[in-house]
Simulated assay, not measured.
Amino acid sequence: MAFTEQDFEAQQAQLRQLEDELSRLDAQLDAQMKAAGVSGADLAAVDTATLPPEVAKAFTQAQENAKREGEARASRCATASTATASAKIPGAGRRGAVRL
């Protein structure tokens, strides 16, 4: 399927709609944060000592799950790159052989 100028214009229109929606949501978030008295720095740092016990437990479990998933992805990536690194390059012939 060929990408036409009409497709491009449709994508541009959709992009503008998404930008408008994002700016609306950003303004709504800023208003809610101002009303709650929360700053951006407060969102970045979470003090687990001030959280209720059930929230702290869920937060700890979520961190552990994220860590395990990250390690699993890293190990899959490492094994995949190791397997391809040691494999012979496709189309490579024997040393000293001339390919015609």
Rank of each mutant, 00 (worst) to 15 (best):
F8W: 09
Q6C: 01
L22Y: 09
D47V: 03
T50E: 02
E69C: 11
E5H: 09
A2D: 06
T60K: 14
A72R: 15
C77S: 12
D20F: 09
L22S: 11
A2K: 04
A78T: 08
A2H: 01
S86V: 09
A87C: 08
P90K: 04
Q61K: 12
R68A: 15
A13F: 10
D20H: 12
D20V: 09
Q6F: 04
M33V: 00
D47R: 05
R24E: 15
A45S: 14
R16D: 02
A97G: 02
L25N: 06
D7W: 03
A92K: 11
L51V: 13
L22N: 12
D30I: 05
T82G: 03
A35V: 00
A66T: 13
R24D: 15
L22K: 13
A85T: 06
A41R: 12
V46F: 04
Q14P: 00
A49F: 06
K57D: 15
T82H: 03
A2V: 04
L29A: 14
L51Q: 13
P52N: 14
A85S: 10
A56Q: 10
K67V: 05
A78Q: 10
S86N: 09
L22F: 06
A36G: 01
G37P: 01
A80P: 00
E71T: 08
A10M: 08
V46T: 12
D47P: 01
A92P: 00
K88I: 05
F8C: 09
R16E: 03
L18E: 10
A36Y: 00
D42V: 05
T48V: 14
F59N: 10
R94Q: 06
S39E: 13
A45L: 12
F8N: 12
R95C: 04
G40D: 05
L18M: 13
P53S: 11
T4F: 01
S39C: 04
T50K: 15
S75K: 12
A87I: 03
A80W: 01
Q17P: 00
R95M: 05
A83Y: 03
R76V: 05
A80D: 03
G91Y: 00
C77H: 07
S81D: 10
V55W: 08
P52I: 05
T60E: 14
D30H: 12
S39Q: 12
G96L: 04
F59G: 03
G70Q: 08
A35R: 11
L51M: 15
T82M: 06
T4Y: 02
T48D: 12
A72C: 08
D30F: 06
